[in-house]
Design a protein around this nucleic acid. Structure first.
Lengths: 119, 119
DNA sequence: ATAACAGTTGAACAACTATTCAACTATTAG
DNA sequence: CTAATAGTTGAATAGTTGTTCAACTGTTAT
């Protein structure tokens, strides 16, 4: 019997009642993966910093590059990921593209995380 | 002049007032990295699932393995990461080790994310 | 039309990370 | 003491991902 065999946790030794309850209460796979995806997008230093500056106000790509001291290319790549995750929105004004948080909910999540870290 | 040159965003073309304001409002690097680390830990499907089951009640490693249909080794590795991030706590009872969410705040963050995803 | 600038994009490389595997510790039952 | 079970751990592998680089689009001004 190897570790590979998931039945190493034989039915006899698993707390069946607990497992059944938990399985019942668990959100749908689809929603859990959505949560994972949300956190994964937020879990990168560049993207966290972008959110933190957009939390104050909307900015163009060039401004963000300046504040974070990174190339426009690197910023643009990350902006795309944030936008696909619907965490930010953009509007075009001439040659410039301005980015802002998608809605209040995103700001709320960011603020909550900051508060949690600062205790 | 290459893209590499961060001064491609010459001072003339950057919105200096905005940049200055944002730099001033921005949280300390240390705290931002803390936020990133928090999200990074949460941004893995296995760890998200572990949180979701512990959100219902405390469980031993074997139970978690059963519910997620993964080996104890894989679960144990992820539990360690969650514990180092102070998102969960453990207590030993005989041969078994029971894990639970570290505090209400963790549950609150998890619930908020689930609600955000489910809209 | 042409030059200059803002921004985007795809490929490639380097760094990171989750799972597997095998070996290990520790606790309990016989 | 010995066997069996719960859990941990380190190394290795395979998959993922962020930045760089170079080339590109689109807009504005001369």
């Amino acid at each position: 019997m190897t570790e590979k065999d998931i039945m190493c946790c034989k039915h006899n030794f698993v707390h069946e009642d607990k497992v059944n309850l938990v399985e019942h209460e668990m959100p749908k796979e689809e929603n859990l993966l959505g949560v994972t995806e949300l956190f994964k997008v937020l879990g990168d230093p560049t993207r966290t910093k972008i959110l933190s500056v957009l939390y104050t106000q909307e900015l163009c790509v060039c401004d963000i590059s300046k504040v974070l001291n990174m190339t426009k290319s690197a910023i643009s790549h990350q902006l795309k990921i944030l936008k696909m995750a619907r965490l930010i929105q953009s509007r075009k004004a001439g040659k410039e593209v301005y980015y802002a948080l998608a809605d209040d909910h995103v700001g709320k999540i960011y603020r909550m995380a900051i508060e949690h870290v600062m205790e």
